[in-house]
Amino acid sequence: MATAVLVERLSARHRVELIDLAGFGVAMTAAERRAYESDEPIVDAGVRSSAEAVTRAEVVAFVTPLQSSGLSAPVKGWIDRVLVPGVGFVIGDDGRMRPGLGHIRQLITVSVDDRSRLRRLREGDSARRVVARALRLVCGWSTRSSWIRIRSEASAAEISDAMAGAARRW
């Protein structure tokens, strides 16, 4: 439901491409890891279509449940497998890494998270760091990151309210 509400909000100003991670392999395969440092790091059709979508995108949004302190495995798997050299970043002739997602202005994460504030603070909220810091490093510091947390039993109206403040910038 959170996805539907988010798509509706974003559709007012953007053309939305929806990627469903059901069936998307979580782990990077041996073939992918071997190809990672080659000129053709993408070997899977699903990964390729995601990579093309990211290359076209101005906004990247994730909708995911969170239960441990890191990102959920499907989203982390998508980041691991899709944002390979040539997509997420570029390795120059000098071996240095350069950002590859400079065209992305906004990152949005809608986390379905029932943990208390205390527990989130205690556990370190690693998921947020992966998006707001590691991913933003390959976008640029002027890229904004919105983090919207909703409860799993939230109604559509509550979800919409939770997004209202941040959505003015999208």
Partner: peptide, 17 residues
């Protein structure tokens, strides 16, 4: 990878821990 464990390990944390 991307500042944290690979997704397969994250998945193990979620399932076992």
């Amino acid at each position: 990878w991307w500042s944290g464990p690979p997704a397969a390990l994250q998945n193990w944390f979620d399932e076992v821990w």
